[in-house]
Write a protein that binds this DNA or RNA. Structure first.
Length: 192
DNA sequence: CTAGGGGTAGTT
DNA sequence: AACTACCCCTAG
C-alpha cells in the first residue's frame, strides 16, 4: 500500500471512528493499528494485542481489528453470536420462551441507535425502530434495554432510586467519540 | 407504549 | 465475578 493511500484511509477513520473501514479495504500493519487505537482510546484504556501476527501479504484486514483489542483486564471482547441454547423451559411457574435472536450488537447497530436517540431523544423507541431498525430483529424493547446497558457501560449516573453499581469495564469497548456522545445525549435528557 | 424493577443464560 | 442480550411484569 502506498503511503498516500494510507493517509487517506486513516483520515477517514479519525474523522469518525465508528465508521469502520469498508470490508474490501485493507489496512496498515499492527504497529500502525496500535498507533491509531492509542489515539482513539488513550494509552491507558486500551492495549493492542501485539502478538497479532501480520498476515502473509503484510496487510491486515478489517475483521482482524476486533481481535487486536484487549481491555485493561486482558479480556477479549466476545466475537460473533452468543450461541445460546434454544429452549423453552420453565422456572417458578413462568414460561421462558426461546430466544428469537441472541446476537451481540455490532458497532453499526450501536451507531444507528445513537443516531436514533440523537434525532428522537431517549424513550422514543418505536420511532427509532421504525426509522433505523425497520428491517432488523431488534424490537423497541431491545433498543430500550440496549440503551440501558450502554448508559451503564459509559458511566452515566443512573437516575433510578435503586443503586446500581458502577460498571467497571466494557466487554465490547466503544470508541471515545461514541462514549462522549452517549453521555451528552443522556445528560440532555436528564436536564429536560 | 415506556420506564424500570426483576430474572435467565451465555460469555470472559 | 462481571458483562451482555433477551425476557417478563407492572405502573403510569
Amino acid at each position: 500500500m502506498k503511503p498516500a493511500d494510507q493517509v487517506e484511509i486513516w483520515e477517514a477513520i479519525l474523522a469518525d471512528p465508528l465508521d469502520w473501514l469498508p470490508s474490501s479495504v485493507t489496512i496498515p500493519p499492527p504497529s500502525q493499528v496500535e498507533e491509531y487505537f492509542s489515539y482513539v482510546y488513550g494509552d491507558d484504556d486500551m492495549e493492542i494485542n501485539k502478538f497479532a501476527q501480520e498476515p502473509e501479504d503484510g496487510q491486515c484486514h478489517q475483521q482482524y481489528l476486533g481481535e487486536f483489542i484487549l481491555n485493561k483486564n486482558g479480556r477479549c471482547a466476545p466475537q460473533g453470536p452468543r450461541k445460546r441454547r434454544i429452549f423453552p423451559s420453565e422456572s417458578r411457574g413462568k414460561k421462558l420462551h426461546s430466544r428469537k435472536n441472541n446476537e451481540h450488537w455490532t458497532r453499526e447497530e450501536v451507531k444507528k441507535l445513537i443516531r436514533g436517540v440523537r434525532r428522537y431523544g431517549e424513550g422514543r423507541w418505536t420511532k427509532v425502530k421504525r426509522h433505523y431498525f425497520s428491517s432488523s430483529v431488534r424490537k423497541p424493547t431491545h433498543l430500550k434495554d440496549k440503551w440501558r446497558n450502554i448508559r451503564r457501560a459509559c458511566g452515566v449516573p443512573c437516575r433510578s432510586k435503586r443503586k446500581e453499581k458502577a460498571q467497571k469495564t466494557m466487554f465490547r469497548p466503544l470508541d471515545s467519540k461514541s462514549v462522549k456522545e452517549i453521555r451528552r445525549l443522556a445528560k440532555k435528557h436528564n436536564v429536560k
